[in-house]
């Protein structure tokens, strides 16, 4: 069973992720500047990625887990057994890895669209554009 301190740390981390999610959503919905909205979107994607990694973690009971890399050669049955019983889940890490790079490409595209928006309207403040 997980001891009390580990449980406390887990709750603090999960709570901080939820608070960050709320802050990012507020930034996307309520702030007027498009650049500030883009910053909020990066915070939102960071939070989602961190949640995925957290779900794949193996919470420590007495000993810390290992990263999903085999470090012993030759690979015998005993090595494989210790590896599968101590390594963390590699699947969320693989999904997050591609999501980060694709997220950067999409962020770059949004940045180009914001620059084009500024060329057309002369401002990045959505309230000012609406009043025109």
């Amino acid at each position: 069973m997980v001891n009390e301190y580990a449980l406390f740390a887990a709750y603090v981390v999960v709570l901080s992720l939820y608070v960050n999610l709320g802050i990012a959503l507020y930034g996307i919905f309520a702030r007027p500047s498009l650049v500030k909205k883009l910053i909020a979107i990066t915070i939102l994607s960071d939070t989602a990625n961190a949640f995925a990694i957290l779900v794949g973690y193996r919470w420590p009971i007495g000993k810390l887990p290992k990263p999903p890399v085999i470090t012993e050669l030759p690979v015998t049955r005993k090595v494989l057994e210790t590896y599968t019983s101590t390594a963390v889940d590699p699947l969320p890490q693989a999904l997050v890895l591609t999501a980060v790079v694709i997220g950067l490409a999409v962020t770059l595209f949004i940045a180009f669209i914001i620059i084009q928006y500024y060329r057309l309207y002369g401002t990045v403040n959505i309230h000012k554009v609406r009043r025109r």
Partner: peptide
């Protein structure tokens, strides 16, 4: 949450 053990599919991948 917090996860004590990894999922079955993760054990297969590992």
């Amino acid at each position: 949450l917090p996860p004590i053990n990894v999922r079955r599919i993760a054990i297969n991948y590992l």
